[in-house]
Design a protein around this nucleic acid. Structure first.
Lengths: 160, 160
DNA sequence: TTAGGTGCAAACGTTTTGCAACTTG
DNA sequence: CAAGTTGCAAAACGTTTGCACCTAA
C-alpha cells in the first residue's frame, strides 16, 4: 500500500476504468470524467453527498443521479467499494489493488482509521475453510474508544 | 455460548430489560411485552417486517411503528444488536452476553452462519491497542462461496 | 444516426415522527 | 392525573427510475 506512488496508482485506475468502459460499451462524458477524477483523487470514504459537493466545485450543474449512476458503474467495474459504517449512508472507497485494509471507527469522533493485519486475514481464510467455504471477501470494522489526547471527542459526522 | 440453558439466558435478558426500563422510566405495556418476548424467543437475524409478522400471530393489532420503537429501545438498552448484511434491511439479533459470534454469509444462497474465533478476537484487541484505541465492539462478516453439496445455490432472501 | 447519458422530478422502500387517543404507574 | 405509549398516516431519508432532451462514437 504505497502512499509513495499514488499518482501512478491513479493512472492505473483510470486505465482500468477505460478498459472496463470500452468492454461494456460505456461512454466517456465530461460529467463522468469529473466524477471519476474527483473520486479517484479523494482519499477518503466519501458519501454520495460529499462527493457531489466536490464535483460541483468543478461543474455546479451535475445532478446527483449522475453521481449515483457513476458510482454504481465504478462499483460494478470493481473500481470502488461500497461501505456502510452505520450512519445510514453509503460511503465509497477507491479500489486500489493490493491495498486491502480494514477499518477502525472512533466511537468518540467517528473518524475512520485504516489498518492491515495479515494474521487476521489468514485466520479468516482458515475459519471459512473450516466451515466448508472459500472466502471471497470480508469486512472487519473495529469500533473503539479513543485514548488520544487530541481526540475531538465529539461527533463530527451528522446523520445527513 | 450455551444452547443448553437458553431458557435461563432469556430470563436473564428479561431481567436486564426490566432493570433498564425501570432506570429509564419506561413502561411495560402489553405490546412491548409481546414484541420483546417474541424477539427474545427467536433465534435468528430478524428484520422488522419478519418480527412484525411473528408478533401479529399473537396480537394482530400491533402496528409496525411499535416494533420499530421497541427495537430501538432494545438497541439503546444494549439488548439487541442491529446488523446490516447488504440487502438494505436492518436485522436484529438478541444480545446474549458471552455469546459473541461473527457471521459468514454464503454468496450463493445468502444463508448466514455464525462462528466464534478467539484467536481473531485477540488479534483485534491487539490491533486496536496498537492504534491507540480500546476496542469496544467489532463486526466481522465473511462473504464466501459455498463448497457444500446441498447448497440451494440460489438467492432465497429477496430485497424486501 | 443511434445507443447511451444527463438532469429533473417523481417513485421507491425503509425508517422516523406528529398527533390525538389511550394506558401505566 | 401526569408522563409515557400506541396506531395511524404523513413525512423524511437515501436511493432508483421514467422520461424527454442531449451527446459521444
Amino acid at each position: 500500500m504505497g502512499e509513495f506512488d499514488r499518482e501512478a496508482q491513479i493512472e492505473e485506475l483510470k486505465a482500468r476504468l477505460e478498459k472496463y468502459m470500452l468492454e461494456q460499451g460505456l461512454r466517456s462524458t465530461s460529467q463522468r470524467r469529473i466524477v471519476t477524477d474527483t473520486f479517484f483523487d479523494s482519499n477518503e470514504h466519501l458519501s454520495i453527498e460529499e462527493l457531489l459537493a466536490l464535483v460541483r466545485e468543478t461543474d455546479p450543474k451535475i445532478g446527483y443521479a449522475t453521481v449515483y449512476r457513476t458510482l454504481k458503474m465504478l462499483k460494478e467495474g470493481g473500481l470502488a467499494y461500497e461501505r456502510h459504517f452505520g450512519d445510514g449512508v453509503a460511503r465509497y472507497e477507491v479500489a486500489i489493488e493490493d491495498d486491502h485494509h480494514d477499518h477502525l471507527i472512533c466511537l468518540d469522533c467517528d473518524e475512520v482509521f485504516e489498518f492491515e493485519n495479515e494474521a487476521i486475514e489468514r485466520l479468516q481464510d482458515e475459519q471459512a475453510k473450516e466451515l466448508g467455504f472459500k472466502l471471497k471477501h470480508h469486512r472487519l470494522d473495529l469500533y473503539a474508544r479513543c485514548m488520544r489526547e487530541n481526540c475531538p471527542n465529539k461527533k463530527r459526522r451528522s446523520k445527513k
